[in-house]
Design a protein around this nucleic acid. Structure first.
Lengths: 335, 335
DNA sequence: AATATAGAGTTAAGCGCTTTCCCCTATTCA
DNA sequence: TGAATAGGGGAAAGCGCTTAACTCTATATT
């Protein structure tokens, strides 16, 4: 049977309190006994039972990570960085793919709370403000990452979507494009609205009118990006450039263009968003707005950590700045 | 404060044992009290504390998932299917990216055991037989998925690598290729050895000699695939076809070819392995050996589940069969 | 009529830790 | 010399649940 703290205590001829203090390096223990007990623990192959420890200390050292879909490369990368940083701080990650569905989201949230996770990291688009409020009431540490929920006082780490949209569109404008379409993920997402706003701002700066007909809403997949881009291309007055609000959609766009014999970037410039590894994989390689995914993950974990250990200053919103990464999917408009 | 089982019991005027039985739907409780208590629980917003429950029942309803890297699309997809099935059965997944490093692997394994996970799913290449033995000794349910560890009596769900290698190579041979190179992931992996064996078998069947010079070992990334493929192409006597042991390597190969002005598939046919979504994304779309990833995930979870609930028959090894998916990266050799 | 049995609950002993007091001894200080 | 104090360790009360064993009725069995 696995040895418990009692076995160790007995073996060492001390109380379990003493052993506990050795394990947790707190309380006053002489150097000798500490070493003696440490050795005994090693000999017996003793490891503290973290479930029991969690029950009395209220700390499970687990973080719940809710995101739309772990098999989406953007979120997979993000998850990886979150996992790495969490591991450094001694936490494990429980993944929860919600598919942006409210029912899954609440189901997972209930579960996670029951399991006593120390904190929750939420990257799930349509985060239900109601369930969010509930969590906040329960004082459960939360950090929103990559997707924010406006009008809610909760720690948040995001990238400046407005600026991203602006950068992408300005780049196209500078290349001489005037007929620029945009595909957004979903108007329910604050991030989409921000990117769209950046798009409009850039247009305005160049005194180009904003046309509803060039704004398309799509799902999160390559296939639906293809379909949405197809609609734009087959419509009247084809755009010469297209800004897709994530790399998946941009890739769908390139594929749609290819299917129609429209050359990228010669006949159509395409800009993506996220700068996942897919961007360098597609041909032509994708010009895209780069998110500092690593930073995003690390900072979010650090913020959550602070809240979890009760180093809770005021809530904050950290906004990281995106960067345009120019590759081969954009070109100046032929005169 | 969050209500506990005591609060509910008091409110209902019964003992906590009764409440516990209502929660767990076991024991003998009259329909009336059951309903009454259920209502009280709902009114109070009571949810059982699963940490406490875990301490006494020894069940955490958590599964540890060890894999090389969650940001690798193959493993991300696999993880997603595992997560989905686990969720259906009431389990959560703790992800652990090991980078195929033994130190990370053991660190995570220790952690997971301390946290009392009910089972472990291992998809981590070089699984250290020693730590594996240790887990088996402790009677911790384990399932190996996608990567097997030979000579160890442990439940395993894999795909038939030998057959996959054979299918890929035969396809190329049928297209008339005779100079066929292969890039494997790492000779430490049983899967690599299996695929290589299939490659040899197919060659033998066509009475083509097996040449060491056409076997290259690479890492798991696109970049290293590019580099490995480059070595092959720049060497003397360029192959007319190449079998890459995963899609990432195949994509690296296509990029390496592109960089050298070698046309795929006209001057070089390329076959991948895994059939991740990347295969349809690259241009030309990739002919690849398709793994039934969904089935792999589901079966592995089901097998683990059986072991966890003690429905433990003999250990088994489930081998799923791969399927060749022909796309545009292969063509018959020009006469 | 006496006994067995099934039904509905209760009691209480854990599960393996953490943590707050508390105690004892040895040293230090005035 | 007596009191204060610091150091090292222990006792015991939880943490919130599960579960074996038990009690008490009410009904069925022979």
């Amino acid at each position: 049977m696995k040895p418990t703290i009692y076995d160790v205590a007995e073996q060492a001829g001390v109380s379990i309190a003493t052993v506990s203090k050795v394990v947790n390096r707190n309380g006053k223990i002489s150097e000798q006994t500490r070493e003696r007990i440490t050795k005994i623990m090693a000999d017996m192959g003793y490891f503290p039972n973290l479930v029991a420890s969690a029950l009395s200390s209220k700390k499970t050292y687990m973080i719940g990570l809710l995101l739309p879909d772990i098999s989406n490369p953007y979120f997979a990368e993000l998850a990886r960085h979150i996992e790495d940083r969490a591991q450094e701080l001694g936490y494990n990650i429980v993944i929860c793919s919600t598919d942006n569905r409210m029912d899954k989201e609440s189901e997972y949230l209930t579960f996670l709370q029951q399991k006593g996770v120390d904190g929750i990291m939420l990257s799930t688009g349509l985060a239900n403000p109601q369930s969010l409020e509930l969590l906040l009431e329960r004082k459960l540490p939360i950090v929103l990452i990559s997707r924010e929920v406006p009008q809610t006082a909760v720690n948040t780490v995001i990238v400046d979507d407005y600026m991203g949209g602006y950068l992408a569109t300005s780049h196209l404008l500078q290349l001489g494009h005037r007929d620029i379409a945009i595909i957004v993920e979903s108007m329910d997402l604050a991030s989409s609205r921000g990117r769209l706003k950046g798009y409009r701002s850039a247009l305005q700066e160049y005194e180009i009118p904003y046309l509803e007909q060039w704004v398309t809403v799509s799902e999160f997949t390559i296939a639906s990006g293809m379909e949405a881009a197809g609609r734009l291309m087959d419509g009247p007055g084809r755009p010469t450039a297209l800004f897709a609000c994530n790399d998946l959609l941009a890739i769908g766009t390139i594929q749609a263009a290819r299917a129609r014999g429209i050359a990228v970037p010669d006949q159509l410039s395409v800009v993506g968003f996220d700068n996942t590894f897919l961007a360098t994989l597609i041909d032509p390689s994708l010009t895209t707005v780069g998110q500092p995914i690593l930073e995003l993950g690390r900072q979010a974990v650090d913020l959550l950590h602070k809240e979890m250990i009760g180093d809770g200053q005021a809530k904050q919103r950290i906004v990281l700045l995106p960067e345009l990464v120019v590759r081969s999917s954009t070109a100046s408009i032929p005169h």
